[in-house]
């Protein structure tokens, strides 16, 4: 009796919803492929909003939201978007989401909205958002694009907050100023935790006004890129 090999029905292994590949989508932009320190994108807003930590945090959340959802929608539409006008379509999606963020923030927390309104609108021009749509979402499935968006938003936000901590601490001596969490760390009066007038060996210390200016953000980001590259061997150019 001739044995007939019964072809087993090919069971296609279902891809896990959150496997190692997906994890890399989130962690990669945080370190090896950081949008600011490695790709050097989104610098303009990183220079502008990072004077204070609190607005930077709100800005980061807004950017995560905008990148994640614009990636999701672009990816959902990727097969029907006409190639000739794909950039315009991407811009429409981004601009819509930014307007949504602006309207919702205006309803939820009017004071933060007042503080940030100009910068929220400027998320539209953030090159990271469009970069991810062009490079990733147009060629990948919705779920992955969404994760990639979150990852890149977090990578951007992390640097934003690190820079803002440096600038606010050394520029104003505070942290989270303007929010209910406001801390006064170092300064020349008794309201600060480290009072430079009463601690004698700290008497020389003054808050550095340069840190408040955008030029300081450039120095801080430059130093961060340097530190990041010397710490992460993958980033060293071998060529």
């Amino acid at each position: 009796m001739a044995e007939t090999t019964v072809k087993k029905p090919e069971v296609k292994e279902r891809e896990p919803l959150f496997g190692p590949k997906e994890k890399r989508l989130i962690t990669d932009p945080l370190n090896d492929n950081n949008p600011i320190t490695v790709q050097v994108l989104g610098i303009c807003s990183a220079l502008a909003v990072t004077t204070l930590v609190y607005p930077s945090v709100v800005m980061s959340i807004a950017v995560v939201f905008v990148i994640a959802f614009s990636s999701l929608f672009t990816s959902l539409l990727r097969k029907s978007i006409p190639k000739q006008v794909r950039m315009i379509v991407q811009l429409v999606i981004i601009a819509t989401l930014v307007t949504v963020v602006e309207l919702v923030l205006k309803a939820l927390n009017y004071e933060v909205y007042k503080q940030l309104s100009v910068f929220i609108g400027l998320i539209i021009t953030n090159c990271i958002v469009m970069g991810r749509l062009e490079a990733f979402s147009m060629a990948n499935k919705p779920w992955r694009s969404f994760l990639d968006g979150i990852g890149n938003g977090l990578g951007y936000g992390a640097i934003l907050i690190i820079v803002a901590v440096f600038r606010e601490l050394f520029g104003k001596g505070t942290l989270f100023a303007g929010s209910p969490l406001a801390w006064q760390i170092i300064g020349p009066s008794s309201e600060y935790m480290l009072d430079t007038t009463s601690i004698s060996w700290l008497g020389w210390y003054q808050n550095n006004n340069l840190m408040v200016l955008s030029a300081a953000a450039m120095f801080v980001i430059g130093l961060l890129i340097w530190a990041h590259r010397s710490w992460n061997p993958k980033l060293v150019d071998v060529s």
């Binding site: 006409p82 190639k83 307007t99």
Partner: peptide, 22 residues
């Protein structure tokens, strides 16, 4: 490449949907 007709329709629909939503 999509033809011009498709592009025009796609963009019009997208604009209307977005405008309505906002």
């Amino acid at each position: 490449m999509h033809n011009t007709r498709y592009v025009v329709i796609f963009v019009t629909v997208l604009t209307v949907v977005v405008a309505l939503l906002l």
